[in-house]
Design a protein around this nucleic acid. Structure first.
Lengths: 252, 252
DNA sequence: CGTGTGTTTGATAGTATTCAATTAATGTGG
DNA sequence: CCACATTAATTGAATACTATCAAACACACG
């Protein structure tokens, strides 16, 4: 079988030093000399197609990954075999840390779009980090960010009202988009309603109704996966448990 | 100001090598020579009283902590100032990683019981870990365990039915107790119903009713905070989404 | 023995889920 | 390029569940 997406060697070879994600990624705040050492261990995987998996449940931990282009979801598999979304990953964000404990991945990473990742073999990373205090520190920082995102997720899920979870989800996504230099007021959702529902612990219909409600209330404008935030302040207020406006919807 | 709970120097001085938690904690699987180096940086804090805080929201990250005796909860503070429980921590489990990203703690750690912790200054730990590959690896492992617990928490919260969350909570707690050598079939909850409710994203009454229901169904026997698991298999089945037994069929 | 906190129980209202059906978007082969 | 087939998303109505309010109860502590 011929590979329909041949590797672009030129782009794969570009070093961390020239990466647009440099500020967000492992290389943040480390010196030029250290950068060269890091470059030696960072590999780039060939592009992934939509729905392609970066690693599978049960795979032995070999590398951690940094999303480079495109978005990912990580899913855990239940007994029954159905998937539950436990995280979304934008460019610059880490994947694969779940295997640090047991040496095996507890979840699977799936590309939501055509995507690229940087792969960092853990053994190499550990060896280099031991020599470079700056990299060690930065590694801890990005791990911390991953932990912080997990806690944000838990905070969403702990909200009792579906609309709060949805507002928090959209708000949080906006913040992460800002962080990678994209607009937080106008964006395209890389994930399906089903993915969102799974991530938020809601039924898919509830997510759909939540979006509709936010649109009726003029907080967002949504068309399929395209989202525009019309009233960021209100979105934030709703995310933090503020009451939605009373029934005075206008007709079309 | 006289300290009402004087430090027991003898017990504080006991080294990691003699600690009963050795298998669970940072020292797991590292050699005797390395152990001595680790001992130099690990400090023990004076015992904490119930409700005493190990660190506060906004505190600068100085150390990470390992629960030694007693249980802890970590809580995040909402805008309104009310607390939300984001984790429970048993002996051998890490606390404080939330601050790795931003350098400030995003939550507070509260002792649920009279408790002791080991304190590991992050700077020292990083320095020693850089020299000791075994410690570095073990550090990654315990960080991974912490991440895995966060994901387990999210999985609980993502369950739609209150009883599933509760069953999963009790089952997970049992597993963690087994891990530290305690019975998973008979134990005392260190946390209040309110804490559990907050942790599970439920109303306190719903938690109480869930416990009652499990007792009525002969899955557990509960008296206040004392819990006995009568039917572990059924508890696991319920935790994984199994249907609770029907009220009473038309015919036996 | 009261008092306060924590827990349980009951009744009701509100919200999310489920089932069902429709509409919109996407992909495929002719 | 269009018609068709599939999948994704929305909408509606009825049911089931949880939150809320209210009150009783249990327990520890002074």
């Amino acid at each position: 079988m011929a590979d329909p997406t041949p590797i672009d060697l030129a782009s794969l070879r570009r070093s961390c030093g020239h990466c647009s994600l440099r500020q967000l990624c492992l290389p943040a705040d480390i010196g030029m000399a250290d950068l060269a050492r890091l470059d030696e261990v960072v590999r780039r995987k060939r592009p992934l197609r939509r729905d392609e998996r970066l690693f599978h449940h049960g795979d032995a931990l070999s590398s951690i990954y940094v999303a480079r282009n495109g978005a990912f979801k990580t899913v855990s598999l239940s007994e029954a075999g159905d998937e539950r979304v436990i995280g979304f990953h934008l460019p610059g964000e880490l994947m694969g840390l779940d295997a640090l404990a047991g040496g095996e991945h507890r979840c699977e990473a799936v590309a939501l779009d055509p995507a690229e990742v940087c792969e960092v073999p853990v053994d190499d990373l550990a060896a280099v980090a031991a020599q470079l205090p700056g990299l060690q520190r930065q590694l801890m920082r990005v791990i911390g960010q991953s932990i912080a995102r997990d806690q944000d997720h838990a905070e969403m899920l702990a909200r009792r009202h579906a609309n709060e979870r949805i507002a928090l989800f959209l708000h949080g996504l906006g913040e992460r988009l800002t962080h990678i230099g994209q607009s937080s007021l106008q964006f395209r959702l890389a994930m399906s309603r089903e993915d969102i529902a799974s991530y938020l612990g809601l039924a898919i219909e509830t997510v759909s109704r939540g979006f509709t409600r936010l649109q009726d209330d003029r907080v967002i404008a949504v068309s399929g996966r395209q989202v525009e935030v019309l009233d960021p302040a209100e979105l934030l207020r709703l995310a933090h448990g503020g009451e939605p406006p009373q029934e005075q919807r206008r007709q079309a």
